[in-house]
Simulated scan of single mutants.
Amino acid sequence: MKLTGREKTELFLEGIVTVILLLLLNLSIIILINQSIMTNPGLRDGIFIIKRSILIGPNHYHLWSWENIFIVLMLIFDAAVVYWRLIRRYHQMQLRHIISELHYIANGHLDHRISFKLKGNTQSVVESINALVDSVIRSMNEERAIESSKDELITNVSHDLRTPLTSILGYLGLIQDKQYHSEADLLKYTEIAYLKAKQMKSLVDNLFEYTKVKQTGTPLSINKIDLNQMMEQLVASFELDARKSGLAISAKDTDRPLYIEADAEKLGRVFNNLISNAIKYGKGGQNIYLSAKIGKPGEAIINVSNDGPQIPPKSLNQIFERFYRVEESRNKDTGGSGLGLAIAQSIIDLHGGYINVTSDPDLTTFAIHVPIKHGDRLSQPNAKSRIG
């Protein structure tokens, strides 16, 4: 930290004034002591005896001049007082500079940081202030991101609800105005309105599930789960739907029983979302594969794979974002709520794990990494999805 010319003058004057005051104090003390000695013969004789009895060095010099010893001690004391006063004033100037920097930051210059280097506890104060400003900036950015995220959520929900709602109102309006030519038209309009209403309900249910699992305090009902048995149940549940889409679903058993501690209902929701997506977007492929294995110690990896179309590389890093869809249109037949993978990721995060996705022309694989024991957390080696 560089001192200004005015501050250097202040330090100089502080030192001069302190020296003058100390010299006056020292002179006063010496005069008072001399007067006391001169007016008290007994004290004077006692001091003389002490001088004769004190011998210094191997040659036994006598201590005759107490005034010189006293003056040396007073000079040492004076130097310490001057040093303390100057250091104290210098620290006050440092604090004044720090406060000035704080006012500058508070006036809207949030990208500014206190750059000068100090010594001792004052430097700790500077570092703490810079860290506090960084923390405030992060909090402000996070708050803005949350607000932006809320606005985006409202926009997406409004769009996805408005589209089927418009169709429902349109077809019900045709029915109310009797603008149909036959009973077949009436049934057709009713069926379309019903399907659109189911679509709206599915979106609302998914939105409710998403907001619920995003809460960090969401309770989990932990049970011991046999992954082999779970995969067999999933194959049985989705076999018919997969067959309708021209796909065969199968599970590969592990070499030995593999148990994990997890919430079976929520974990089932994850696999339902992933397998439903594999059926929905795997058209053109032939197979859906389920498999499980031990990863690192204390880690289980469950893969959901399909040999359908490759996910575009540009979409891999966004695929778990809410309302994101690989296809450009939000109104295609395959377009769901766009919340399925976001829900799956949030549920796995609640379990202390993570999901990776890889995709190449031959195979698309969602790899679910979960801890075998509840309460453990896995560290994701790469925060971004990897492209196979």
Rank of each mutant, 00 (worst) to 15 (best):
P257H: 02
V72E: 03
T39G: 06
G5I: 10
Y83S: 08
R330Y: 11
Q35H: 08
R243F: 14
E142N: 12
G298Y: 08
V19Y: 08
I56N: 03
L73V: 11
N228F: 06
L3D: 01
Y104P: 05
Y171W: 05
H91I: 09
Y189L: 13
M38C: 00
A344C: 01
V326I: 15
F12I: 13
I343F: 01
D360K: 04
S315K: 11
H103N: 10
G298L: 02
R89D: 06
T163K: 09
Q94C: 12
G308I: 04
K196L: 05
G170V: 00
N277A: 03
I69K: 07
I260R: 04
N206C: 04
W84T: 07
P381M: 03
D362F: 01
Q92I: 08
I279M: 03
Q215T: 05
G340C: 00
L341M: 03
N306C: 07
K214W: 03
I343A: 04
V270M: 07
D362I: 10
R377A: 13
G353F: 09
V370F: 11
Q92C: 01
G308D: 08
I343D: 02
E147Y: 09
S182C: 06
R113P: 05
N59L: 13
K150P: 00
E152D: 13
I368S: 07
Y171A: 06
R113M: 11
D360I: 02
A79F: 15
A292Q: 04
S250Y: 11
N277W: 11
D78N: 15
L341F: 15
D376I: 12
A251T: 03
D45M: 13
Q35R: 11
I99Q: 13
A106E: 14
R138S: 10
N121Q: 14
F366R: 07
T218I: 04
V19L: 15
I49K: 12
H60M: 09
R256H: 12
R269V: 15
D307R: 04
L63Q: 05
N59G: 09
T216M: 05
V125R: 00
N40K: 06
S28G: 15
L339H: 00
Y210I: 01
S237K: 14
F323V: 06
I137T: 07
R256K: 15
N223K: 13
I154H: 05
G57A: 03
K150R: 06
W66I: 12
D185T: 05
L153F: 15
I114V: 13
G335C: 10
I347R: 01
R386S: 09
R6M: 13
L43W: 10
S36C: 03
F48C: 06
E232I: 08
V82N: 05
G375Y: 02
V19S: 11
A344N: 02
R377V: 14
L290V: 01
L169K: 03
K188W: 15
Y281M: 05
R325I: 08
D151C: 02
L363V: 14
D333H: 10
S135G: 11
N317Y: 01
G388A: 14
V19P: 01
H112V: 12
L187W: 08
E143C: 00
V204Y: 09
S315D: 15
I347N: 03
K212Y: 09
K280S: 14
G298H: 04
I192P: 00
S100R: 13
R243D: 12
V125P: 03
N277S: 11
D205W: 08
A242T: 00
A262G: 11
W66N: 10
P309Y: 01
A131V: 02
R330P: 07
E101T: 06
